[in-house]
Structure formats: structure tokens, C-alpha cells
């Protein structure tokens, strides 16, 4: 068993129920291939950085799971067939350092799920300090 993460972008043209249904179908694909879902994180509807199939927005959903490496091929094949998905990104967490990061991400997702009030406080961008703008201009 190896740790993975999948980010899927669902079509924005679907209704809310249809989106939930298609996400359920996606999770079903993973579990039916022997995967164990550790956590899910709904990032919600957001603007895409560039249009995908002429869509400007998309519904982002992240799934953390562990599965045998041989099953990934099949999971990705099923994702490609699915027409509700605009895009998916599979990330492998292999080394020790990545696995601990994966555990932290799972805990973070759990915390976010248990406290769903996070919608209000969005604009807290963490940027590394520095980048002073032209302080030598007089």
C-alpha cells in the first residue's frame, strides 16, 4: 500500500447534487479498486487559472487515500473515461518525508471537515516575508 492524493476538478455546469453524486462515484472508483480513503477535502468552486474545455470555473475536490501501486493505472483509466471530470492530478507520497507530510495533510483535512466554518475567513494569504518594493526610489 502506498499513499496517494488525487485532486479532481468537476465540471461547473452540473448542479450541486450532480456534483456530489459524481464525487461519490469517484470515491467509489477508488474504494472498488482496493483503496482506503483517509480524508477528503472539498476546496469548492473556484476560478481556474486557465480555461479547461471552455470552462472558466471548476469544482475542486481532493481525496487522500492509500492503495496498492498496481491499482493506480486502473483508477486513472476510469477517471479518463469519466466525462464529468475536467482534470485530475495524482500525486504519489513515497519517501518518509512525504509520508509524514501526507499524514499532516490528512489531519488538516479532518480538522477542516470537523470545523466547517472556514468559509468566512478566506483572505489570509501566507506569503514569505520580504520583497520590498523599490525602497530606494526617492
Amino acid at each position: 500500500m502506498r499513499h496517494y492524493e488525487n485532486l479532481v476538478i468537476v465540471k461547473p455546469t452540473l448542479t450541486a447534487e450532480e456534483i456530489q453524486a459524481s464525487i461519490k462515484a469517484i470515491e467509489e472508483i477508488i474504494t472498488s479498486n482496493g483503496g482506503e480513503i483517509a480524508a477528503t477535502d472539498a476546496m469548492g468552486m473556484r476560478k481556474l487559472a486557465y480555461p479547461l474545455n471552455k470552462n472558466e470555473r471548476g469544482y475542486f475536490h481532493v481525496i487522500y487515500y492509500s492503495v496498492a501501486p498496481s491499482a493506480i493505472n486502473e483508477i486513472e483509466r476510469r477517471f479518463r473515461i469519466n466525462e464529468d471530470l475536467l482534470r485530475f492530478v495524482t500525486i504519489k507520497y513515497d519517501t518518509n518525508r512525504e509520508v509524514t507530510a501526507w499524514n499532516q495533510l490528512v489531519q488538516k483535512a479532518h480538522k477542516k471537515a470537523s470545523a466547517p466554518a472556514g468559509e468566512a475567513k478566506v483572505e489570509e494569504v501566507i506569503i514569505p516575508a520580504g520583497i520590498d518594493e523599490d525602497e530606494d526610489a526617492e
Partner: peptide, 19 residues
């Protein structure tokens, strides 16, 4: 990043990539 002792970066944390 060394100063902040970053061990792992998350691609979903886009605000941190801005630098």
C-alpha cells in the same frame, strides 16, 4: 525556505508559491 525550515511544500497552498 531554509530559514523557515521548509521540509515539504504543498502544491495546493498557492499563496506560498507566489514568492
Amino acid at each position: 525556505y531554509c530559514e523557515a525550515k521548509v521540509d515539504f511544500m504543498d502544491y495546493k497552498d498557492v499563496g506560498a508559491l507566489r514568492f
